[in-house]
């Protein structure tokens, strides 16, 4: 299998992962007003973004793991999609390499930062 075929397959697989975990994220953050699930937002009388609910979810190792998996899948899916769109503009081979390297570094940097934030947030939540 060629490199781009492999990346495209990963792009589709990442999409499936996102559909699952972003679906859970949206259910937690944006549909809780209509479908309140106490396991997701323990204080149902408060908003999903209020600290009490953030801490309750943050204590959960499951949520910390899903944040990291979702972060990685979404970064790959989004940045690879952006790379494909930019490459369709038919840039020169040199520019393609630069664009690929910039997107790869941006993705790795954001993944490292986001993973740190998820783990640090999990550790902080456990102190409350």
């Amino acid at each position: 299998m060629m490199k781009d075929q492999k990346l495209w397959t990963w792009h589709l697989a990442a999409g499936a992962v996102i559909a699952l975990f972003l679906g859970l994220h949206m259910l937690t953050m944006h549909v809780d007003g209509l479908i309140p699930i106490r396991a997701l937002n323990v204080a149902s009388d408060q908003r999903a973004i209020d600290w009490v609910n953030v801490v309750a979810r943050g204590k959960s190792t499951f949520f910390a793991l899903t944040y990291v998996v979702l972060l990685g899948a979404a970064l790959f899916h989004g940045l690879y999609g952006l790379r494909n769109i930019l490459f369709e503009l038919n840039p020169s081979a040199g520019l393609k390499k630069v664009v690929g390297a910039v997107l790869l570094l941006a993705g790795l940097g954001l993944f490292a930062f986001g993973t740190w934030a998820a783990v640090a947030g999990h550790m902080l939540a456990r102190t409350f």
């Binding site: 600290w51 972060l71 989004g78 999609g81 952006l82 769109i85 986001g114 934030a117 640090a120 902080l124």
Partner: peptide, 26 residues
């Protein structure tokens, strides 16, 4: 997709505030 990506990159930065303190989060 482009709109979601732009939002997502900002979302990573904004929501990282929960790693610091309740005050930073608020």
């Amino acid at each position: 997709g482009l709109g979601l990506l732009a939002y997502f990159l900002l979302h990573i930065v904004v929501t990282s505030a929960r790693a610091f303190s309740p005050e930073r989060w608020k």
